[in-house]
Each structure stands twice: as structure tokens, then as C-alpha cells.
Computed example of a mutant assay.
Amino acid sequence: MRALPGCLFVLLLTGCSWLHQKPSTANQTAPVSPFQNNSPAHKTSTRPLPAKLYKTADELVGKPFRDLGEVSGSTCQVSLQDPPPSLSAARRDMQMRAAHMKGNAVLLHRCEIVRAVAGCYQQAVCQGTALKVTQ
């Protein structure tokens, strides 16, 4: 009877060590250092630059452009303790969304702070039109 706890302890130890065995070396790949640049030198950035912001339609007079659709950007203040929403961050978000649509410009329609939005104490919202301006 005294041997039973000892045997269970030995089985427990061998069972746990079996779970932590290293896999065979046939399926392993070479370790990757976080400081090495393994990407090709010609790889381009996947993050587009923000689109240029036009605040009035007069700025587009004489420039050929194509309308790509409506875009919006927003930032949210979840609670009263969070920093207030930023109109500039909402504009930047809108510009990045236009760039993801392959646009290089945004015609701003409006930016405003909105209260009592579901999930937000306050929200900064900007709306505009994504454009592809050719020069």
C-alpha cells in the first residue's frame, strides 16, 4: 500500500515529461532571429500613404479626378476617463481608408463630435469622398 503513492508519483512525472518532448528534427525549420531582415530588398511597403485632403471643391477645379466612393473615419471615447476623441485622428483614418481604395485624395464633407453613440461616450466622425486625382 505504501508503494502505490510512489508509483503514481513516478507515472505522473513520466507522463508530464512525455508531453514536453521536443518534436523530431526532420520537421523543424531554422530558427529566425527577430533582428535579421529575411525579406527581399525589393519588397514594397504594404501600408499605403494617406490620401491628400481637400477641404473644398474649389481646390479640385481644373484637376481631372475620378470618384471612388464615400469614405469615413472615426475615433471613439469609450468612457469619461478615456482621452477625448480626436478630429485629426478621424481625418487620418478617413484618408487611410481612401488610400486602401486606391485613392490618392479625399474631398472632406464634414467632421464633427457626436455624443450618445452606442459603445462610445463621444465619437469623432469625418466623412468625405475618395478620389483618384490625375495630375
Rank of each mutant, 00 (worst) to 15 (best):
12 L>N: 03
13 L>K: 05
14 T>F: 14
14 T>H: 02
14 T>M: 13
15 G>S: 04
15 G>Y: 01
16 C>Y: 00
17 S>F: 05
17 S>T: 14
17 S>M: 12
18 W>P: 01
20 H>N: 03
20 H>T: 12
22 K>P: 02
23 P>V: 11
27 N>V: 14
28 Q>N: 03
31 P>Y: 12
33 S>L: 02
35 F>W: 08
35 F>L: 09
37 N>F: 01
38 N>C: 07
39 S>I: 06
40 P>S: 06
40 P>I: 01
42 H>P: 01
42 H>I: 00
42 H>A: 06
42 H>S: 09
44 T>Y: 00
45 S>F: 03
46 T>I: 10
46 T>R: 12
47 R>S: 03
48 P>L: 08
48 P>H: 05
49 L>E: 13
51 A>K: 14
52 K>S: 14
53 L>Q: 14
53 L>S: 12
54 Y>I: 04
55 K>P: 00
55 K>T: 15
55 K>F: 07
56 T>H: 11
57 A>G: 03
57 A>F: 10
57 A>I: 10
57 A>S: 15
57 A>K: 13
58 D>W: 04
59 E>G: 12
60 L>I: 08
61 V>D: 04
61 V>N: 06
64 P>H: 11
64 P>K: 15
64 P>D: 12
66 R>Q: 13
67 D>A: 00
68 L>A: 09
68 L>R: 09
68 L>V: 09
69 G>Q: 08
69 G>Y: 02
69 G>N: 10
70 E>I: 07
70 E>Q: 10
71 V>D: 03
73 G>P: 07
73 G>I: 11
74 S>I: 00
75 T>W: 04
75 T>R: 11
75 T>E: 13
76 C>K: 01
76 C>L: 05
77 Q>P: 05
77 Q>V: 05
78 V>A: 15
78 V>M: 14
78 V>K: 15
78 V>H: 13
79 S>V: 10
79 S>H: 00
81 Q>S: 14
82 D>G: 05
82 D>H: 13
83 P>T: 09
83 P>H: 02
83 P>D: 10
83 P>S: 09
84 P>F: 06
84 P>M: 06
84 P>C: 05
84 P>D: 08
85 P>H: 04
86 S>G: 07
86 S>L: 08
87 L>H: 03
88 S>C: 02
88 S>Y: 08
88 S>I: 12
89 A>P: 01
89 A>G: 04
90 A>L: 09
92 R>A: 10
93 D>E: 13
93 D>M: 09
94 M>V: 12
94 M>D: 08
94 M>K: 11
95 Q>F: 03
95 Q>P: 05
